[in-house]
Computed example of a mutant assay.
Amino acid sequence: MWSQRGVVDYGLAKRATVQSLRSGRMARRDVCDAHPYLLRAARLLGEPTQRACPICERTNVTHVTYVYGDQLGRSAGRVKATSDLVQMAHEYGEFRVYVVEVCQGCSWNHLTVSYVLGNGEPPGDSGADGQTAEK
């Protein structure tokens, strides 16, 4: 995405968690603990992937994308489709995106990536005449 910055990939943490489970240092109940609201969001609003769950290996994981930011107002904390993010990146100065992978079969969930989007303009950026600056 054109304005993507501040990317944090949680792949190493995911691999460590899966390895801890497979080595017996963690119990399955410790990693397959998705909140019912997250499971519902995955079922109703999530975006299916072609990647199998690293825990049960039977069900493909679903991505649930949340957005947060002061400029978002009532939209902050909501689930958004990836296709909506392009328009939002043009409309808002800055907001953070969090992508969570969820297995609807075994309740595995893990934050996969987070990043910042936005056009970089401060909220209410206006010119000397009080009009909003043109892009």
Rank of each mutant, 00 (worst) to 15 (best):
S3H: 08
V7T: 09
Y10C: 12
K14N: 09
K14F: 08
T17V: 15
Q19A: 15
S23R: 14
A27I: 10
R28A: 07
R29K: 13
D30K: 04
D30P: 03
V31D: 02
L38F: 05
L39K: 06
R40F: 11
A42C: 03
L45W: 09
E47T: 13
P48M: 10
T49L: 01
C53Q: 00
C56L: 02
C56F: 03
E57I: 07
N60Q: 13
H63T: 07
H63F: 10
V64E: 00
V67D: 01
Y68E: 14
Q71S: 09
A76L: 05
R78V: 08
V79M: 00
K80D: 00
A81F: 04
S83I: 03
D84C: 08
D84F: 06
D84S: 15
V86F: 12
Q87K: 12
H90R: 14
H90F: 13
E91N: 10
Y92K: 02
E94Y: 12
R96T: 05
Y98C: 04
Y98H: 12
V100F: 00
G105Y: 00
G105L: 01
S107P: 04
N109R: 01
H110G: 07
H110C: 11
L111D: 04
T112F: 06
V113K: 02
V113H: 02
Y115W: 04
L117K: 06
N119R: 05
N119I: 03
P122G: 14
P122T: 15
P122F: 15
G124I: 06
D125K: 14
T132R: 12
A133L: 13
A133P: 07
